[in-house]
Nucleic acid binder design. Structure first.
Lengths: 284, 284
DNA sequence: CGTCCGATTGACAGCTATCAATAAGAGTGG
DNA sequence: CCACTCTTATTGATAGCTGTCAATCGGACG
C-alpha cells in the first residue's frame, strides 16, 4: 500500500490510467470481423509480424483460425497482475508495456512491447504482471486451445513462437544486466539504444536517428530501477554532451557511437547479434 | 565503474572456472549411448522433466530422436557469450547458472538452472550469455533441425516448450523486479525463497526447510546486483532474526512466513501462482 | 599446526533516492 | 491573444543505502 509520499512519483502514471479508463473486466473483443486501426488492415498486419519462417500456406491456416482482435486506448490495460488468463496475444500495432507492482506501490516495468511481441502465453494461467498501453494498440488474440490446435496444423508456427519467446528472454536478460550492473547514465543510454534499434527494425518506423517515444520520465525510471529525477539528470547530461536529446516525446540521437559507448556496449556486437566484444574474443 | 580492483570479487568465480577447466571448444558430446550420471538413468530422467502434457507415445517419439547427452564438471561452461550455438539444451541433473559479463568485468547472473530448465533456443544463434555449472551437470542436447522435426512429429512438445519458456520468462521478470525495486535484504530473502520453492518442486530434492545450495556469496551477489559484502550483511541480519541461516552451502529456513515477509511477498499468491495479494484484489 | 580461500565485520565514500522548489509546456477559458 | 491552471520536467540540497577498501575470522586441508 503506497504511502502517498512514495506513490507521488513512481505510480503516477498508473493512477492516471486507473482514472482515465483503467481496468476492462471484459476486454473489448472485436471478434471476427476485421477491424482497422490507425490505418492498418489487420489481417495483413498479422502475417508480416509472425510470418518469418512460415509458408504462405501456413499463414492461410493461421488466418483460418480466425483470431479475434482487441483494440485499446492509450493508458488502458489488457490484463492485470493476478488475472486468470488463458489467451496468447500478439501486439499488432502500437506501444505498450508490461509491469509488476509490489504491495507498497513500487513499480517495475519489465518490457516495452512493440508490434510483433507475443505474450500472455500458457504457464499457470495466472498472470504475474499487468499490461498497459502507451498508445492506441491493437492485439490479436488466440485462446490456449486454439493455439494448441493451430500448432498441430502448422508446426512452423510453434517454432516461430519459440523464436519470439527466446528473443523476449534475451531482451529480459539484457534488461536485467542493465538494472543489476550498470550505472544510472549507462542504463538510460542502453534503453534509448535498445528502443531506437527495435523501432528501426519494426516496419513503418523511422530508421534515422529521430523518433517519437510515447513515454514519460517515470516510465523510463520504472523500467530501469531509478527515479524520474535521476533519469532526468542522465538525460540532461547526455543533452549537454550532444549525445542525444529527449524533449517531450521527441528523441534525437545525435551521436550513435558515443551513445553506445555511454551505454557500455559494443554496438556492432551487442545490437546486431547480442554479444560483448571483449568476451567474444575469449571465445574464439 | 569497477576496474581491476573491483573485479577481484565479482569475477572471481569465472576466473576460477577459466583456470580449472573453463572453455570446452568441443563440448564432451557423450553421443547416443545412454550415460548415467550421479545415479540417474538419463532416458528415464528426460521424460519426467519434459513430459507434462505429453502422452507416452509422444515421449517414445521424443526418445526416438536420440538426443545426445553432455556431462560437465562443476565450474565448466557449456557455452560462452558470443558462441554460435544452434542447439537446444535440457538440464537433466545438477545446478548451473547463466550469466552475462560486461567488458570491464561486471557480471550479472541471469538465472539459476535447475533440472528441467530449457535454454539455448533458436534466436539468431549467437548466444548473449554464458552457461556455467555449479555442480556436476548432465544435459540433453537437440540440434535446431532435430528439434524442428520433432516438433512436427509431436505437436504437444512445442506447446510444452512454450510453457517452459513462459515459466522462464516469468522467473526473469520476478528477478528483474527484485533487482530493480527491492532493497538488498529483500532481494536476498526473495532469492532464497525462490530457490527453496523451486528445489522443493524438483523431484528428488528436499521438501523440508533445509537444503544444500551449491553457491558462493559472489554468486548470490551477482544474481542480485549487489556485492558479496552486502549479501553477507543481509544474511547475517536474517541469521540474527532467526529467519534463515546459510552457512557454507547449507541453507536452513527457520521461519518461512517471516522470510516471505522479508522478501516483500505474499507467499500464498506469489509463490504458488505468481501474483500480488493487493493487486489481485483490485482485479476481482 | 600452518596455509589458503571464502566469509565476516568495520569504516568510509559515493551514487542514487528523497524532499523541495522552480521552470516549462499544453490546454482552457476569458 | 493573454491569463490561468495543471501536469511534467528540471534543478538543487541533503540523506541513506550500498559499494569500496581493508582487516580479521573461520573452516578445510595437507
Amino acid at each position: 500500500m503506497p504511502s502517498l509520499a512514495s506513490m507521488s512519483q513512481d505510480t503516477m502514471h498508473s493512477q492516471n490510467a486507473a482514472l482515465s479508463g483503467g481496468r476492462l473486466k471484459q476486454p473489448h473483443l472485436a471478434s471476427d470481423h476485421g477491424i482497422a486501426t490507425s490505418g492498418i488492415q489487420l489481417p495483413q498486419a498479422l502475417p508480416s509480424l509472425l510470418a518469418r519462417g512460415l509458408t504462405p500456406q501456413d499463414m492461410l491456416r493461421v488466418n483460418a483460425a480466425r483470431p479475434t482482435f482487441v483494440t485499446l486506448e492509450p493508458g488502458q490495460s489488457l490484463y492485470y497482475q493476478g488475472d486468470d488468463c488463458n489467451n496468447i496475444y500478439l501486439l499488432l500495432d502500437g506501444w505498450a508495456f508490461r509491469h509488476q507492482i509490489l504491495e507498497d506501490g513500487r513499480r517495475q516495468i519489465l518490457d516495452f512491447a512493440l508490434p510483433g511481441v507475443v505474450f500472455g502465453l500458457p504457464g499457470t494461467g495466472i498472470m504475474t504482471h499487468s499490461l498497459e498501453t502507451l498508445t492506441g494498440c491493437t492485439f490479436s488474440v488466440f485462446t490456449r486451445e486454439r493455439l494448441f490446435d493451430l500448432m498441430r496444423d502448422v508446426p512452423a508456427l510453434g517454432f516461430r513462437l519459440l523464436e519470439i519467446m527466446a528473443a523476449a528472454e534475451a531482451r529480459a536478460f539484457e534488461h536485467l544486466t542493465s538494472v543489476g550492473r550498470r550505472t544510472a547514465k549507462e542504463r538510460v543510454a542502453h534503453l534509448l539504444l535498445e528502443l531506437v534499434t527495435r523501432a528501426s527494425q519494426t516496419p513503418a518506423m523511422p530508421r534515422d536517428g529521430s523518433m517519437t517515444l510515447p513515454l514519460m520520465l517515470p516510465h523510463i525510471a520504472d523500467a530501469l530501477g531509478l527515479t524520474s529525477e535521476t533519469v532526468c539528470r542522465a538525460l540532461s547530461s547526455m543533452r549537454k554532451d550532444k549525445i542525444a536529446t529527449l524533449r517531450g516525446q521527441k528523441l534525437d540521437i545525435l551521436d550513435l557511437k558515443r551513445l553506445a559507448h555511454a551505454a557500455g556496449v559494443d554496438l556492432m556486437a551487442d545490437f546486431r547479434h547480442g554479444t560483448n566484444g571483449e568476451t567474444l574474443r575469449l571465445a574464439s
